[in-house]
C-alpha cells in the first residue's frame, strides 16, 4: 500500500557517523522487504549553469562537441532536480551491512568526473579510472576518512580505494582542471539512491519500519522527511527545492 509523505523542510548539519564493523551482521528478510521511492522537485526559475572554460587544456576542450556546462544544478525538463543524493538517515536497527563485492566506478572522461554524484557502502571499493589523454590528480577531500591526493596519468592503472567510515558527503576534485568536481556519499548501509534524468529515485529491499529519509544537494543543502514502510509495501516521499 503506497504511503505518501511530504518532506519536511530545513537543512541539517552533517549527520554523526561511525564505523559499524563491530556491530552484528545485518539481515533483511526478502519476504517483508519493501521499497522507498519518490521524486525531487524544483520550484522557481532554473538557474543557467555557466559553460566550463577548458581552454587551459585544449585536449579536454576537444573532447566535447558542444560546450560543457557545470553540473552544479541540473533541473530536468519535468521540473525535477538531478544529482540529489537520497538515503535513510535514521531508523534502521544498528547493524553491520556487508559491502557489495562489485566496486563503484568514478571515471574521468572529457576532463569531467562521471558520475557527478554517487553513493557507496563503507568498505566497498571505488574504482577510479582516467579515460582522458591528459594527467589528472584525484583529491578525495574527505573529513572523517583520511583525505588523499594522487596523480593519475593517461592509461594509468585503475585505482581501487575504500573508505572505512560513513561520510555523507564529500567532494573529489582535480587541481589540474579546477572545474572538475564529483560528490561521494559513503553510507553505513545500502539504502541510498541518486536522482537521475527524471528526478526520481527508488531504494529497494528495505526492511519495514519508520525512517527519516534525507536528501542532499551540493548547492541547495539538506532536507529530510519521515515515512513508514509497511511489510512488502512501497513508501513514497517527495522533496522540493527551489531557487
Amino acid at each position: 500500500m503506497p504511503l505518501l509523505l511530504l518532506a519536511a523542510c530545513g537543512s541539517s548539519p552533517q549527520p554523526s557517523t561511525q564505523s559499524t564493523a563491530s556491530l552484528p551482521e545485518a539481515h533483511v528478510d526478502p519476504a517483508t522487504a519493501g521499497t522507498i521511492s519518490g521524486r525531487v522537485l524544483f520550484e522557481g526559475q532554473a538557474p543557467v549553469m555557466p559553460v566550463i572554460d577548458m581552454a587551459s587544456n585544449p585536449q579536454c576542450e576537444r573532447q566535447h562537441k558542444v560546450p560543457f556546462r557545470a553540473e552544479t544544478v541540473i533541473v530536468n525538463s519535468n521540473k525535477t532536480l538531478r544529482n540529489v543524493y537520497i538515503h535513510i538517515k535514521d531508523g534502521l536497527a544498528p547493524a553491520h551491512w556487508a559491502a557489495p563485492a562489485q566496486p563503484a566506478r568514478l571515471d574521468q572522461n572529457g576532463c569531467v568526473y562521471a558520475p557527478h554524484v554517487q553513493g557507496i557502502v563503507e568498505g566497498q571499493a571505488l574504482e577510479i579510472l582516467n579515460s582522458d589523454p591528459v594527467n589528472h590528480n584525484v583529491h578525495a577531500e574527505s573529513q572523517k576518512n583520511p583525505a588523499w591526493n594522487e596523480s593519475q596519468p593517461p592509461r594509468a592503472e585503475h585505482k581501487f580505494k575504500k573508505f572505512g567510515s560513513a561520510e555523507i558527503m564529500f567532494p573529489f576534485t582535480c587541481s589540474v582542471h579546477p572545474w572538475m568536481k564529483a560528490w561521494l556519499g559513503v553510507s553505513e548501509h545500502p539504502f541510498f539512491a541518486v536522482t537521475g534524468e527524471d528526478g526520481s529515485f527508488r531504494i529497494e529491499g528495505v526492511p519495514p519500519g519508520t525512517y527519516t529519509v534525507e536528501a542532499i544537494h551540493e548547492k541547495f543543502g539538506r532536507k529530510e522527511g519521515k515515512l513508514t514502510l509497511s511489510p512488502t509495501g512501497t513508501a513514497t516521499i517527495e522533496f522540493t527545492y527551489g531557487s
Partner: peptide
C-alpha cells in the same frame, strides 16, 4: 588558480 595540489608528489 586552485592549482596547489595539481602535482601531488
Amino acid at each position: 588558480r586552485d592549482a596547489g595540489l595539481s602535482v601531488p608528489d
